[in-house]
Design a protein around this nucleic acid. Structure first.
Length: 485
RNA sequence: CGGGGUGUGGCGCAGUGGGUAGCGCGCAUGGUUUGGGACCAUGAGGUCCGCGGUUCAAAUCCGCGCACCCCGACCA
């Protein structure tokens, strides 16, 4: 180690504070989450990264189904004419759509869009499926891929093709659609906080920031460790916009034909970027136990070959005991224990189980938490109860730590001068009194690069008193601004 | 798409007054090791991002592409 360098376990990783984006890229590659593809802007998700996505799918899918949603599959290709039926929608997505213009060696009569999202083709089907108010609500979800020809791409955060789920629902009334929109945001909020240990602000997007074609957009906003915001999930109340574009009508009990109100909501592989940037530290990834591919890694340690038999026997017992209870990785590679410690810390395994001659002799193991490196000695027989408990402690601790970080980096600004000072010197979230005004929002973005992330549901009791920090008009709400990904 | 930067074994880099490519890590084999990235020996691995040009000769000079990174505009 270099003279004077502070002690670090992983030397080949840059410090987060020195160069956050470099740190991020290094972690993604070294932890073997993802790799670059031969096509610009596309990403290869490696098995270790994909395993995280599979856990996200499993946990989130169960939450969707509890609310009555069923999964379906819709095609990748969408006729051009479909995209054009909702004016705001085309305007919003046109610049980033990829097109298929040839097939079977011949020019196609109508170019086909590679879906940037599926509202339009869903609208086409919903119109056919829905006849009566008795067919409502219609609640479906798609686990699929979409493509958006982004100018500037970053692994997980913004790639030309990405994986996500997109939910689509149709309802009898606007009120019911609004209720569903809010319900799904709440599903996301509880999932992201409980399973990913990421604290989020939840609330409404401004007119400028809402989805192309939506009446209202709600979102979750999380703070990354560099103080920037990441939109982590969105839920849109589409009102009658798509129903009118696609003629989604039903015959109501009163004998009137009426337009449905629809919603859509999504969460993408981008959330893996959030996990990395919310929990990661100077040694690499820290994965929340609920979605970690391996929840614990066993590192055997022996001094002489004679030790091996007893250690392997104990490991066998541990494996049998934890089967089906804890996702376990046993690292029997030839690397030294020190190497394995660093490797699995870099890859974010929440708990390490060390087992050497001393431990075998005492019929115990040493458990080491990834988040704070606290060690404890546990009897092998007690692992079955202690390890799941410890994993839950880590899960909670990660959430609390991230929450504390967000609180420390959340500021209140009374005046625009204060606001500018905070944005230029500290980053983080800035909460202000706000009189909704799109022009002012754009001006603020122009000058400070901060955007209105969300108008939180969490507002002062009895309404907001005072004036907007920017325009001086009577404030109507509190809003949170930040620089974002 | 605008501004800046980078592209050389798997990874990190060196190499430019043009002269047939090198280091560290990793990898393979054998041996000794193993409680915070072990050591010795032997060995494999490169159309120097691509295409074109200048030249007796190009990783090096010129042109055109492509990819990635950073900063903008756009966005899950």
């Amino acid at each position: 180690m270099a003279e004077g360098a502070k002690e670090k376990y992983v030397e080949e990783l840059v410090d987060q504070s020195d160069d956050f984006s470099r740190w991020y890229n290094q972690v993604v590659r070294k932890a073997e989450l993802a790799d670059y593809a031969p096509v610009r802007g596309c990403m290869i998700i490696r098995p270790y990264g994909y395993a995280i996505w599979e856990h996200i799918q499993r946990l989130l899918d169960a939450r969707f189904k509890e609310t009555g949603v069923m999964n379906a599959y819709f095609p990748l290709l969408i006729p051009r004419s479909f995209l054009e039926r909702e004016a705001k929608h085309v305007e919003g997505f046109a610049p980033e759509v990829a097109w298929v213009t040839r097939g079977g060696g011949e020019e196609l009569e109508e170019p086909l869009a590679i879906r940037p999202t599926s509202e339009t083709i869903i609208g086409y089907s919903f119109a056919k499926w829905i006849q009566s108010y008795r067919d409502l609500p219609l609640l479906i979800n798609l686990w699929n891929n979409v493509m958006r020809w982004e100018k500037r791409t970053v692994l997980f955060l913004r790639t030309a093709e990405f994986l996500w789920q997109e939910g689509h629902t149709a309802h009898r009334t606007l009120e019911e659609a609004e209720e569903r929109t809010r319900l799904m945001l709440e599903v996301y909020r509880s999932f992201v906080q409980e399973d990913l240990a990421i604290p989020v602000l939840h609330g409404r997007k401004s007119e400028n920031e809402k989805f192309a074609g939506a009446l209202r957009t709600y979102s979750l906003e999380a703070m990354m460790r560099d103080g920037k915001a990441l939109q982590s999930a969105t839920s849109h109340n589409l009102g009658h916009n798509f129903a009118q574009g696609f003629d989604i009508q039903y015959l109501d009990a009163d004998g009137q034909r009426k337009y449905c109100a629809t919603t859509s909501w999504g969460l993408s592989t981008r959330i893996i970027g959030a996990i990395i940037m919310v929990h990661g530290d100077e040694s690499g990834l820290i994965l929340p136990p609920h979605v970690a591919p391996y929840q614990a890694v066993v590192v055997p340690i022996w001094r002489k070959d004679a030790d091996q038999g007893a250690i392997m026997e104990a490991i066998g017992r541990i494996e049998r005991m934890l089967k089906g209870k804890v996702r376990l990785k046993v690292d029997l590679s030839d690397n030294t224990p020190g190497w394995k410690f660093n490797e699995w810390e870099l890859r974010g395994v929440p708990v390490r189980i060390e087992i050497g001659p001393r431990d075998v002799q005492n019929n115990s193991v040493v458990l080491v938490r990834r988040d704070n490196r606290a060690k404890e000695t546990v009897a092998i027989d007690a692992l079955e109860t202690r390890l799941p408990e410890l994993l839950e402690e880590v899960q909670q601790a990660l959430f609390q730590r991230a929450l504390a970080f967000r609180e420390e980096h959340t500021y209140y600004a009374e005046t625009y001068d204060e606001f500018k000072e905070i944005m230029s010197e500290k980053r983080g979230f800035v909460r202000v009194k706000w009189a909704e005004d799109s022009e002012a929002e754009l001006a603020i973005k122009e000058e400070t690069k901060a955007t209105l992330r969300v108008i939180p549901f969490d507002q002062p009791e009895g309404g907001v008193q005072g004036r907007c920090f920017y325009t001086g008009k009577p404030a109507t709400c509190e809003a949170v601004f930040a620089r974002s990904y």
